[in-house]
């Protein structure tokens, strides 16, 4: 039997990789993918908890997270397209319309 902590550590590592990806990459699409990565790592831990606690609530939560992730990806990519139309770049360090 695989201990719960293995899943959790796996989840933590993937989450941190997602964080690193989000913080370091210039490409906005990769940044989005990193966010998906983080959401997935959380899903792993939720499902693992659900299994080991013998509760179905974790799976429901994952279901909701997937729905929200889908919505987020759709809106995010739409924003990206709208942005790209105004300024043809996807590099986050070149997009600073909100600079104070």
């Amino acid at each position: 039997m695989v201990p719960l902590s293995w899943y959790i550590v796996l989840s933590a590592v993937v989450f941190s990789i997602g964080v690193i990806g989000f913080l370091t990459r210039r490409n906005l699409i990769i940044a989005f993918i990193s966010i998906e990565l983080m959401l997935n790592s959380v899903n792993i831990s939720l499902v693992a908890f659900s299994h080991y606690l013998q509760s179905i609530k974790g799976q429901i939560m994952v279901f909701l997270v997937i729905a929200v992730a889908a919505a987020e990806a759709v809106v995010g990519l739409a924003i990206l397209i709208a942005l790209f139309r105004n300024k043809p770049t996807v590099n986050v360090d070149e997009i600073n319309l909100l600079k104070g």
Partner: peptide, 8 residues
């Protein structure tokens, strides 16, 4: 100046 507008 803190508010750079850069996402990362």
């Amino acid at each position: 100046k803190i508010q750079t507008g850069v996402l990362s």
